[in-house]
Design a protein around this nucleic acid. Structure first.
Length: 865
RNA sequence: GGGCGAGUGGUGAAAUUGGUAGACACAAGGGACUUAAAAUCCCUCGGCGCAAGCCAUACCGGUUCGAGUCCGGUCUCGCCCACCA
């Protein structure tokens, strides 16, 4: 055994040991309760970043902890391997995306292994492998049969940089989620998945997920956006034909206040009105081209134009004019709204802009309505009652809605409707590096599904994209085929699937990654749902919603017995670092990596300045931000692992912040973690020299106190592990080390060494989920066993925690004035007497009688004067 | 505009149901060891005060014997959604 802590050799040996023994292979069954610990799989971008290290360290801590607690644990790993970066890299380097991707996977797998994660590598999968994506295609065909997948032509979000369609969820602030390019609108045919059929279940089942953060559930509920309202029609006659203009409203109670109707620029009625109306046609064109930036939209001036078409109010029969309004969305509801300027803020501003009538139909007692300016209460549906509304006068919101909906229904002009904000999920992408959509286009048979026997439709792996659209279109050997129905020459679909399809079910495939004959098998029902899912908050909506939908769809196909795929969700915080830059008078900002900047501090420890090491000149601080290429503030995990080793990197990650919070990078704190593990090693070395000694029946008081402290800290640490607060578990390990070093200095007799050994064995096991390598080695060196993974989780000894005397804090009027030691079983009267006799207490009571004495057992006594 | 969350030393952070605020660290300062440095070890470390003590968990108020924690209000920051009818 070496006296000096040498992480490199220790870690290499431990990893070899685990590999030789195949320690982390998970096998179904065996009588233990199962624990499926799942981390979001990485995109193989080239190398790991700190976010990955943090994510997988959290997963590994939970994995190893549960394993020692007696669970049958599965921790798998795979690769979200399709996607655009591979195409961009291919263009930059002239290498096919497949090769780039597989090279990256090989490198990142090596990195993950060097971090010592307890992963069952036999279940590894990559979504770009035909063995995996054939099942995307297979399931897509099943969904097509069920009508959940369907084709339609629709106005879509078009990313001009990536040259592809984006789902609504992938448009952020009017920009592509990946490229940041301003999204355009285009009309394109594509395949859609009817996620809206599951809207209600996706929403209501959120209540069955107590192990999910409220924040994520709120975001999903918000996104699904359930609204209760009334869908109804304004009848009209055009070109001699009776027609209906449908609208949706959540405020049917204000229906008697309708003074105009507004339709979206894309609405068919707008197009009809624009015929022979060049001015209107021009306006509609302007609206369609207009910005889709939400920030712009929210502040954009209300613009509109009358169509000259009039409709009839369904209840009053009044003539109402139809306007085209730039604030009406074609994609929500009917693309048309009833406008009630008196009680809707947008309608109000629009009406004022164009001098349209404003008619108050909701009254709140004591509030005076005015058309001069908008007041919050105009839209208050809780307090108001109907007025100027004939037979509905005096009714409150819900009663009025009921009555009006009933009257509309009686006329066949409307009914109550539940509407969702959620849209169907467009999955066609005009990209090469993705899963081919298994469809063949035949001139006579139309769109024909590829027969199951011909799956997978294999993506050619030797294409090099050149930026001019999808290279598959130029691959005659891929495109040309024969129609499965009639045998005539046909064309293969060249669109590929959204990569979110790949990641919507990979967690199921881990359970049966070797299955050649089926997408999933019975083993899925053993492992799923995942007991713990860990990943970034950025997937709160997209990936997690799609995955929930996908597993429900598979359930309804009878493939899995599963309502929800992820029982508990932990959203880990981001890894941040300082930002330094210089902004020349002219030219672009340059960012400098914090590793190249020297920061000086004054005597109080306050920051006094920062200079670039290379030239000694000052740089400006840009605060703290997520590690990113654009801010040049990333720290490469590889350098960290090579300099310090996996255990120190892992310990630092766990100690610095609780898992859900952001983690601010600090080189000095990494050094602190290294210091701690060196001390652990020294302690282990010393303990090994002294030899193992069994605990005697009785211990001297100081050793009993030390032992009590060790067990009390362990008790708290176990509690903290249960609630995933790993930073205080790391703190607990530090406290135990401090205590044990004190014990060590107390002498070198059997009693000392007995406490030392018991404490060290507890410490190593408590640390082992976080720093498994050092634990593995010391466990052997100290003679506790040959494989720490087989050791039981340490539990505090209740007997060690018992004290003959307890210390109570003494307060007078809620302020601490001292403390007393009393017998553990001291009665109330004895405690009270002891406290009242305490000199500090007497001093602060200043001769006044005690009004009341509050005793909190085992904690404190408060004397009220 | 709507929703959710958070504000504690120079810094990262602790404080389970209301019960000793700042555990455990980092940084800083002082000291020991050393020819010297690194490493290691010891001490100090929220503010004011010589001290007794007082003040301190964004701010104001409330409940309570007792509030970082509960309630009401204000301010600031972060995230998500957003002309969703």
């Amino acid at each position: 055994m070496q006296q000096k802590y040498n992480p490199q050799t220790i870690e290499r040996d431990a990893q070899q040991f685990w590999q030789t023994r195949d320690s982390f292979r998970a096998v179904e069954g065996g009588g233990k309760p199962k624990y499926y610990c799942l981390s979001m799989f990485p995109y193989p971008s080239g190398k790991l970043h700190m976010g990955h290290v943090r994510n997988y360290t959290i997963g590994d801590v939970l994995t190893r902890y549960h394993r020692m607690k007696g669970f049958n644990v599965l921790q798998p790993m795979g690769w979200d391997a399709f996607g655009l970066p591979a195409e961009n890299a291919a263009m930059a380097n002239g290498v096919p995306p497949a090769q780039w991707t597989w090279d990256n996977i090989a490198y990142m797998r090596k990195q993950l292994k060097s971090l010592g994660f307890a992963i069952d590598w036999s279940r590894e999968l990559a979504t770009c492998s035909p063995d995996y994506y054939r099942w995307n295609q297979w399931l897509f065909l099943r969904l097509l049969e069920k009508g959940i997948a369907y084709k339609k032509t629709q106005v879509v979000n078009w990313d001009p940089v990536d040259q592809t369609v984006l789902a609504n969820e992938q448009v952020i602030d009017g920009k592509g989620w990946r490229t940041g390019a301003t999204v355009e609108k285009r009309e394109i045919p594509g395949y859609y998945l009817a996620i809206t059929k599951y809207a209600n279940e996706l929403l209501s089942a959120l209540d069955t997920l107590p192990g999910w953060p409220e924040r994520v559930k709120a975001m999903q509920a918000n996104w699904i956006g359930k609204s209760y309202g009334v869908r109804f029609a304004f009848p009209y006659t055009l070109d001699g034909k009776a027609e209906k203009l449908w609208v949706f409203t959540t405020r049917a109670d204000t229906i008697m206040g309708v003074t105009f109707v507004a339709v979206a620029a894309e609405h068919p009625l707008a197009a009809r009105a624009a015929q022979g109306n060049a001015k209107l046609a021009g306006f509609i064109d302007e609206c369609k081209r207009g910005s889709v930036m939400e920030a712009d939209l929210a502040t954009m001036e209300k613009k509109g134009m009358p169509t000259g078409i009039f409709v009839e109010h369904p209840l009053s029969g009044e003539k109402i004019e139809v306007w085209v309004g730039n604030y009406v969305l074609m994609s929500y509801g009917e693309g048309a709204v009833m406008a009630v300027p008196a009680h809707d803020e947008r309608d109000f501003h629009f009406a004022r802009q164009y001098q349209l009538p404003i008619k108050q139909v909701i009254d709140i007692e004591g509030q005076a309505f005015s058309t001069n300016g908008w007041q919050e209460w105009y839209a208050d549906k809780e307090r108001g009652v109907c007025k100027n509304s004939n037979k509905y006068n005096g009714l409150k919101h819900s009663a009025a809605v009921d009555a009006i909906a009933a009257d509309l229904a009686a006329k066949g002009l409307g009914e109550k409707q539940v509407l969702y904000r959620l849209r169907d999920w467009g999955v066609s992408r005009q990209r090469y590096w993705g899963c081919p959509i298994p469809i063949i286009h035949c001139a006579s048979c139309g769109d024909v599904p590829v027969p199951d026997k011909d799956l997978p439709v294999v993506l050619p792996e030797d294409c090099v994209p050149d930026g001019s659209g999808n290279p598959l279109n130029k691959r005659a050997d891929f495109v040309n085929c024969s129609c499965p129905k009639c045998g005539q020459p046909a064309k293969r679909e060249t669109d590929t699937m959204d990569t979110f399809v790949d990641s919507s079910w990979y967690y199921l495939r881990y359970a049966c990654a070797d299955s050649k004959t089926a997408m999933v098998d019975e083993r899925v029902n053993y492992w799923l749902p995942a007991d713990q899912y860990i990943g970034g908050i950025e997937h709160a909506i997209l990936h997690l919603l799609y995955s929930r939908f996908w597993s429900k769809a598979m359930r309804d196909l009878g493939l899995v017995k599963l309502d929800e795929p992820f029982k508990n969700l932990l959203t880990q915080g981001m890894v941040l670092n300082e930002i330094f830059f210089r902004k020349p008078a002219a030219g672009r900002i340059t960012y400098y990596n914090p590793a190249d900047v020297d920061v000086s501090v004054d005597a109080q420890g306050n920051r006094s300045g920062a200079v670039l090491r290379a030239d000694g000149q000052p740089v400006e601080s840009g605060g703290i931000g997520t590690m990113s290429k654009s801010k040049n503030n990333g720290v490469d995990p590889q350098a960290l692992i090579e300099t310090y080793g996996a255990d120190i990197a892992r310990f630092y990650m766990m100690f610095t912040a609780p898992p859900e919070q952001t983690l601010e990078w600090s080189d000095a704190s990494v050094e602190g973690a290294a210091r701690f593990l060196r001390r652990v090693w020294s302690l282990g070395f010393e303990a090994a020299q002294r030899g193992k000694v069994a605990l005697p029946a009785t211990l001297p008081a100081t050793l009993a106190a030390a032992r009590r402290e060790l067990h009390a800290v362990l008790k708290q640490a176990n509690y903290d592990l249960g609630r995933h607060q790993f930073n205080t578990v790391a703190s607990a390990a530090m406290k135990m080390l401090n205590t044990l070093e004190g014990v060590l200095k107390g002498g070198n007799d059997d009693a000392v060494n007995a406490v030392l050994h018991e404490g060290t064995s507890m410490l190593l096991r408590l640390l082992s989920p976080i720093t498994p390598h050092i634990g593995h080695q010391l466990w052997i060196d100290l003679g506790y066993g040959s494989d720490m993974l087989d050791a039981p989780w340490p539990e505090p000894d209740a007997a060690a925690l018992i004290e003959s005397e307890t210390e109570l804090v003494v307060q007078v009027n809620g302020k601490k004035r001292g403390d007393i030691r009393v017998a553990r079983d001291a009665g109330k009267a004895a405690i009270e007497a002891a406290v009242l006799a305490h000199p500090e207490v007497q001093k602060f009571m200043a001769g006044q009688p005690a009004k009341k004495v509050v005793i909190v057992p085992g904690r404190l006594v408060n004397v009220v004067v």
